[in-house]
Design a protein around this nucleic acid. Structure first.
Lengths: 216, 216
DNA sequence: GTCAATGATCGTGTATACAAGAAGTGCTTT
DNA sequence: AAAGCACTTCTTGTATACACGATCATTGAC
């Protein structure tokens, strides 16, 4: 547990939302949360305030907090922005790549290869996240890295759903290969382009997303 | 005053920070703020929590809140991300432009023209903001628009400083012209490219920024 | 039978009280 | 005189109390 209860609660509730324990639209009762975590309403409220500020929940004055339901269209928009940010990270990574980042990318990339070969979508889901984070870090822009990590976090549940689509695992991995090649070759524009299409949800992938969101 | 004190305080303190009334590094005493605004510590704390969540201040456990000092390098990184997001907004705007958005862009653009012609950098600062917001809106991506507005808000003080640089007003406006042309021509790639360079801080503009930040 | 009005109930918004840690101050000791 | 330690004080973190608005149900009227 973190040093202060408010922060701990924020992480706890955030995780519960992102892992779909609290569903979109669900009302978050302060008293219920307080008793559940064995604290008073004060730190619960502070945690909710923070989650409201980062857009995970909505606090309607005098009417309590509800988990925001982005809906397919907004999720698409979020992926669109994510694609753009990852593209930037990739282009910076290609220009600024150093030894440590190169090794981190190589390591996470080969872990993805193993999970993809094994057809283990849960393992791939985790390794994929580490791979992308390695690219964020390689861009050497702290602010960009933070933005990427935060948005990635919010999109996590949907990224996971996407991997369930048939053949997505092997497609994803082969795209990774091209991305790694571009970054290692120092080709920033190509890395940017590849990451944009890799992360974005073009064409039929949007309907796949809608379908998987509806299936929950 | 907003419907609840917490939100009002958040906006109030946020504005005070962004208008440099509270300087970077300054300690924000809960009790001082509470008495200043004539409320108790509870809503003050809730406001501070939210400002911490969006990265404007840092709350160090048991040691109070301080206004974050981004420093030139981080401000540069923020502009880099802003440029990318605005580029995306511009490319979307070029593809999705409708009548209302077109009129909004035209109107704000001509207001910029007048302020630039008058050499009124304060007026231009305001009109420029409206112009950029018109482009965000024209992209028709709510999430992107929100991200742009939020980041624009945080960069506002620095954008203002930049306009003080010699000739920046007329340069900025002529860039606007090219951007408007590209968007109206439906050339998304060109709009993206132009906005990226317009917003980003390349070359000597970075040293201008550093100089103006130091001069405060 | 349906709709509206009024009162009861529940939950949020704010203030205050209390607990606990951090920073500053003054004393002692070397 | 400088450094270390204890004590005091100030500020934050959490709990609780109270006030007010929203929601819901019950009752009455049409």
């Amino acid at each position: 547990m973190s040093e202060n209860v408010g922060r701990w609660l924020r992480d706890e509730i955030e995780n519960s939302i992102l892992s779909n324990e609290f569903s979109p639209g669900e009302r978050l009762d302060e008293m219920v949360l307080a008793t559940r975590f064995g604290v008073s309403r004060t730190p619960v409220r502070e945690a909710l305030m923070q989650l409201d500020a980062i857009g995970l929940i909505e606090i309607r004055p005098r009417r309590g907090a509800i988990v925001i339901d982005p809906g397919p269209h907004r999720v698409y928009e979020m992926f669109e922005v994510m694609a753009e940010l990852e593209g930037l990270a990739g282009s910076l990574a290609a220009r600024r790549l150093d030894k440590a980042s190169r090794e981190a990318i190589t390591a996470t990339h080969s872990r993805c290869e193993q999970s993809a070969a094994a057809g283990d979508s849960d393992a791939y889901y985790y390794d994929n996240e580490e791979f992308h984070k390695a690219i964020y870090a390689a861009g050497r822009s702290e602010f960009l890295e933070e933005q990427c990590v935060q948005l990635h976090r919010r999109l996590r549940p949907y990224r996971r759903l996407q991997l369930r689509v048939r053949n997505r695992l092997s497609t994803s991995f082969s795209e990774h290969c091209a991305i790694v090649d571009a970054i290692f070759a120092g080709d920033g524009d190509e890395a940017r382009r590849l990451l944009r299409t890799h992360v974005g949800i073009q064409g039929e992938r949007f309907s796949d997303l809608v379908a998987s969101m509806a299936a929950r």
